[in-house]
Amino acid sequence: MKSSKLIIGALAALGLTAGMASAQAEEDRDAIAERLKPVGQLCLQGEDCGTASAAGSDGGGDNGSSNGADGESIYGSVCAACHDSGAAGAPVRGDEAAWSDRTGQGFETLLDHAINGIGAMPAKGGNPNLSDEEVQAALAHLVEPVMEVPDLGGDEAAAEEEAPVAAEEEIAAAEEDASADDAATEEDAAADSGLDGEALYASAPCAACHASGAAGAPVVGDAEAWAPRLDKGIEALYESAINGIGAMPPKGGATLPDEEVKAIVDYMVSQAQ
């Protein structure tokens, strides 16, 4: 009986040991596979390689982040196969000598080449699923060590925000200029009307009050009395004379055309200036 128990215990221990060894072997195989995994994937033109922007890097700041794309991750999954090794004559990232002629063409030209392809490099590195913005972000990461990369999308967005404000300011300025021109035109029209404001003043009921100051009317020639009225502007004085104000009836109580009333106002104003 004791022998049977010992045999069963030995078999159980042997089975547990074998299971642990199998699990350890499985972990070792996974670790080896992870170490042997390639850092990039070469995608040939015409193949469906899937989108490269899904996997992101937890690394530091990236030049592609300003337009919402992870340039470093896209570079690693699409571009690194050639630009880390120099395969097919691709300039290696960070090699200033290899990039000198290319960076001299400017970022926009390099972006055009990256999107549309050039030489042995297919359009968008062979991944047609990439958007232009994702290619731009990957290019920014690629050339960042060898040239100054423009702020992706920042200036354009700012310009778009400022454009409506600038347009509104221009419209307001144009309206203000138009109002000033209209006022000047009306004043010039009154001055060039050929009407004799002094004669009209003398023959109209205006002189009855404006020569004596009756009913509080400002006397013609009294600059101090006219000063606050002149501050209102000629248009306000025309309106008061034509429509009446305070004790003064419309058009001074006479049946005069608006042009003649304005000519009288112009005369009285000229005497107070």
Results as ranks from 00 to 15, higher is better:
residue 21 A to W: 04
residue 22 S to H: 10
residue 22 S to E: 07
residue 23 A to Y: 06
residue 23 A to H: 07
residue 23 A to P: 03
residue 25 A to N: 01
residue 25 A to K: 00
residue 25 A to W: 03
residue 25 A to I: 04
residue 26 E to G: 08
residue 27 E to H: 01
residue 27 E to W: 01
residue 27 E to I: 00
residue 28 D to E: 15
residue 28 D to W: 11
residue 29 R to P: 03
residue 30 D to P: 01
residue 30 D to V: 02
residue 31 A to Y: 09
residue 31 A to S: 05
residue 31 A to Q: 13
residue 31 A to N: 08
residue 31 A to V: 05
residue 33 A to Q: 12
residue 33 A to Y: 09
residue 34 E to V: 03
residue 35 R to Q: 05
residue 35 R to E: 05
residue 36 L to D: 10
residue 36 L to R: 11
residue 37 K to N: 10
residue 38 P to G: 06
residue 38 P to V: 04
residue 39 V to R: 11
residue 39 V to P: 01
residue 39 V to N: 02
residue 40 G to C: 14
residue 40 G to H: 15
residue 41 Q to H: 11
residue 41 Q to I: 10
residue 41 Q to D: 07
residue 42 L to V: 09
residue 43 C to R: 11
residue 44 L to S: 14
residue 44 L to N: 14
residue 44 L to V: 15
residue 44 L to C: 13
residue 44 L to W: 06
residue 45 Q to L: 11
residue 45 Q to D: 14
residue 46 G to F: 02
residue 46 G to D: 07
residue 46 G to K: 05
residue 46 G to M: 03
residue 47 E to F: 13
residue 47 E to R: 14
residue 48 D to G: 08
residue 48 D to M: 09
residue 49 C to R: 14
residue 49 C to T: 14
residue 50 G to I: 05
residue 51 T to S: 00
residue 52 A to T: 06
residue 52 A to Q: 15
residue 52 A to L: 08
residue 53 S to R: 09
residue 53 S to D: 13
residue 54 A to R: 13
residue 55 A to Y: 01
residue 56 G to Y: 03
residue 57 S to W: 05
residue 57 S to Y: 07
residue 58 D to P: 00
residue 59 G to Q: 13
residue 60 G to Q: 10
residue 60 G to S: 13
residue 60 G to L: 12
residue 60 G to R: 10
residue 60 G to D: 11
residue 60 G to W: 12
residue 60 G to F: 10
residue 62 D to Q: 15
residue 62 D to Y: 09
residue 63 N to C: 00
residue 63 N to R: 10
residue 63 N to L: 10
residue 64 G to L: 11
residue 65 S to E: 15
residue 65 S to H: 08
residue 65 S to F: 12
residue 66 S to C: 04
residue 66 S to G: 10
residue 66 S to W: 02
residue 67 N to D: 12
residue 67 N to M: 04
residue 68 G to V: 06
residue 68 G to I: 02
residue 69 A to W: 00
residue 69 A to H: 12
residue 69 A to S: 11
residue 70 D to T: 07
residue 70 D to A: 03
residue 72 E to W: 10
residue 72 E to G: 09
residue 73 S to N: 12
residue 74 I to V: 04
residue 74 I to N: 01
residue 75 Y to W: 11
residue 76 G to K: 14
residue 76 G to Q: 15
residue 76 G to P: 00
residue 77 S to V: 08
residue 80 A to R: 08
residue 81 A to N: 13
residue 81 A to T: 15
